[in-house]
Nucleic acid binder design. Structure first.
Length: 411
RNA sequence: CGGGGAGUAGCGCAGUUGGCUAGCGCGCUUGCUUUGGGAGCAAGAGGUCGAGAGUUCAAAUCUCUCCUCCCCGACCA
């Protein structure tokens, strides 16, 4: 991608009314744009990150045998009445009447919808287990939005739902999800705190939360300094012993639901003995858009974002210091072709801007690897490669740039 | 919803004891010079001062109502 032809509206100044680092940087780096409080557009750079995170999630979900589908965001309120959650979720639900006078809502979550689908088609124990998931926009009329994309009214979530014959199957699926979650977050460059938690409005018994320690966190946990045990901070009372309190933000939550939804919606199957039984359910969520904010929150410095390599909008940025210098640009073009052929996503800053601005923009958008082509170095047939994460500079011969990039990328 | 802050050009801000044609920086347009850390000179474009009502000879500035955004509390991914 050529920067001059792309759409990366970076901001030099800190946008007014932004406190959280991730909020500032996501606006300054041109990742997102606010329409109204809690409602954001994903600009091309932000959308690239989003897509990469989604693909990691897809890979890990598919790897444990889940099947992707897409459910509607628009729901008749009637289905919510069947579980009584039209009342329990009343505060966050966005509701309205359509022109026929039918009461509708925008889906805040999808247990009811998925259960309704499975109810229609799953009739036998032979069709179980099955786990379905989607990556989709959720709508919650938050009383208070917060920190840009962190708590939004419209946000992107991965939600998976498992259906089993018995508790044993549920436990197996639950563990698979738990392990997949560990892999997903790790690939996104996040160090997670996993803690068992309350099920809240979801119902069910067992649940685990996946949190990231960050100053903007809305939750807190106690970590035992001796044995590493972690418990949720419920009421602020410090537990007995050697504990440390950590503020953290929740990115994922998985639940063993049991039969709460299958029972109220009539999702049953016939077992081997011909007996009718409710399907045993689990549900597994990840706040995809929030995850991006959390990544920025824990991976930045004074100059900008430092993307983990798997979810960076580009793998490499090529930065010819002087776009007017034909030798520099010819080399930039050469690396661009080579690296793209090697399967990398490459951004070439071909803008005829001052060096300072190009360097600052590069730091801001935080591409992991940067190739700097300047006249001064080029006089000695040399080109620099700079690592965003630690500022380390590797000077290489101009003919070895692409090989060196491919090597550095694997580190 | 309760408490606190803020709305003036695309962005960041000044101007607010009522008084000249509403200003500064960045960005944007044109030209020339520049180009290793947000360049220089010159000439330009860009505004219902959040909205409505009121007071006044006169309102960005005073009064009332409303709207929006941000931060702190109860909920959540």
């Amino acid at each position: 991608m050529y920067w001059s032809k792309y759409f990366i509206p970076t901001l030099k100044e800190v946008p007014a009314g932004t406190e959280a680092v991730s909020h500032r940087l996501s606006l300054r780096a041109g990742l997102v744009n606010m329409l109204t409080s809690g409602v954001y557009s994903y600009l091309p750079l932000g959308y690239r990150v989003l897509s990469r995170v989604e693909n990691i999630i897809r890979e890990e979900m598919n790897a444990i045998g889940c099947h992707e589908l897409l459910m509607p965001a628009l729901h008749p309120i009637d289905i919510w009445k069947k579980t009584g959650r039209d009342a329990t979720l009343k505060e966050v639900m966005i509701t309205f009447d359509n022109k026929k006078g039918q009461r509708m809502c925008l889906g805040p979550t999808h247990e009811e919808i998925i259960t309704d689908i499975v109810r229609q088609f799953v009739k036998s124990y032979r069709q179980l287990p099955v786990t379905l998931y989607q990556i989709q926009t959720k709508f919650r009329d938050e009383i208070r939005t917060r920190f840009g994309i962190v708590r939004a009214c419209e946000f992107i979530m991965k939600d998976a739902y498992s259906f089993d014959r018995d508790g044993e199957g549920l436990k197996k699926n639950y563990d698979l999800q738990l392990q997949a979650y560990q892999r997903i977050f790790k690939r996104c460059g996040l160090e997670m705190i996993v803690v068992s938690a309350d099920s809240g409005a979801m119902g069910g018994s067992v649940s685990h939360e996946f949190l990231v320690a960050a100053p903007i966190g809305e939750d807190a946990v106690w970590v035992n300094k001796d044995d590493g045990r972690i418990i949720k901070d419920e009421e602020g009372k410090e537990p007995q012993g050697n504990w440390e309190r950590k503020v953290a933000i929740e990115l994922g939550h998985i639940f063993q639901l049991g039969t709460k939804y299958s029972q109220s919606l009539g999702a049953t199957f016939l077992d081997e003995n011909g007996q009718t039984k409710p399907i045993i359910m689990g549900c597994y969520g990840i706040g995809v858009s929030r995850l991006i904010a959390a990544v920025i929150e824990v991976n930045n410095d004074a100059e900008g974002i430092i993307w983990p390599k798997e979810i960076a909008p580009f793998d490499v940025e090529i930065l010819p210091v002087q776009a007017s210098d034909s030798a520099s640009m010819a080399l930039a073009e050469k690396y661009y072709q080579e690296l793209r052929q090697a399967g990398l996503e490459v951004l070439l800053d071909d803008r005829d801007e001052s060096a300072g601005r190009k360097f600052n923009d590069a730091d801001l958008i935080g591409i992991p690897l940067r190739v700097i082509i300047g006249k001064r170095m080029l006089a000695h047939n040399q080109v620099e490669i700079k690592l965003r994460r630690n500022g380390q500079v590797v000077v290489v011969n101009k003919d070895e740039v692409s090989q060196e990039i491919l090597k550095l990328r694997t580190l």
